[in-house]
């Protein structure tokens, strides 16, 4: 296992052919307000392969994604962030992706950071790159930082691997890693399960600081991670281990 710091790593100059093999996967549930702008922002940074998985939304997330230029898939039923992310990764693999990036659909992740996540994989230094909010926590509310630190400690205790942001959804996977990582959980515990898989398959990983933009919209969402969902997530992680 290798934990390589990549802050000082030079970014590769992207050619259109390099970006063609990169697929951005965005799980989205009731994100009609934000998803269009998120897709357009990503396209403006030079990535055209965008897959939005509408996780059974009751609003027009699916249509908004398609109108903004993304390939949209639809879950007929709401199955959770983990399930939607896995569907997106499976679809990207079918479409021949060499690198898969996952990010949130509420606009809290900055598309400018995608290149930072891609660099270690393109230079064949790692298999998985984890975007971490805690190496650059500026603007992050204190309770979010505490919540994440507790999450990290629980993930370390249950799965035996310490990472600085176990709950981040902004990650990049090489094709090899995407094939090896096999998750079974549907909801927020998915992010922690990926850490377990990294440890299990001894994948090389690195952590890259990312910017997080907390907006009124992202903070006001009803389906965001909270204390209650955090407790449920821990319960489900332990339940899965005992089965």
């Amino acid at each position: 296992m290798e934990n390589t710091e990549t802050e000082k790593m030079p970014l590769p100059s992207h050619t259109p052919s390099q970006n063609d093999s990169v697929w951005i996967v965005i799980p989205a549930y009731n994100e009609a307000t934000a998803i269009g702008n998120v897709v357009r922002d990503i396209r403006n940074t030079g990535f055209s392969n965008i897959l939005v998985v509408d996780d059974g939304s009751r609003d027009t997330t699916f249509e908004a994604s398609q109108n903004a230029g993304a390939t949209a898939l639809r879950h007929r039923l709401n199955r959770g962030k983990g399930a939607a992310t896995k569907t997106g990764i499976e679809a990207a693999k079918l479409l021949g992706a060499k690198i898969i990036v996952t990010m949130d659909g509420d606009g809290q992740h900055n598309p400018e950071d995608i290149e930072k996540l891609l660099a270690p994989i393109q230079q064949k230094k790692t298999d998985v790159v984890l975007g971490t909010r805690l190496k650059n926590p500026e603007g992050m509310p204190w309770y979010k930082i505490t919540h994440n630190m507790i999450g990290n400690a629980i993930v370390w205790y249950l799965y035996g691997l310490w990472v600085s942001d176990s709950q981040s959804g902004f990650r990049a996977y090489s094709c090899r890693a995407a094939k090896m990582i096999d998750t079974t959980t549907d909801r927020y515990e998915y992010d922690s399960e990926v850490i377990r898989e990294i440890k299990k398959h001894r994948l090389k990983y690195s952590e890259v600081p990312i910017e997080v933009r907390y907006t009124d919209y992202s903070m006001g969402k009803t389906q965001k991670q909270s204390l209650v969902t955090g407790i449920k997530t821990v319960y489900r992680m332990i339940f899965h281990m005992l089965k």
Binding site: L73, H75, R76, R79, A83, T87, A91, L94, K243
Partner: peptide
């Protein structure tokens, strides 16, 4: 009981995913 519910949930997810990926396939 929880294990059985979990198994059914997983099957529902699998079906939902298969349907979503149908177009891509």
């Amino acid at each position: 009981l929880l294990s059985a519910i979990e198994r059914v949930e997983r099957q529902i997810t699998s079906l939902t995913r298969r349907e979503a990926l149908d177009g891509i396939d």
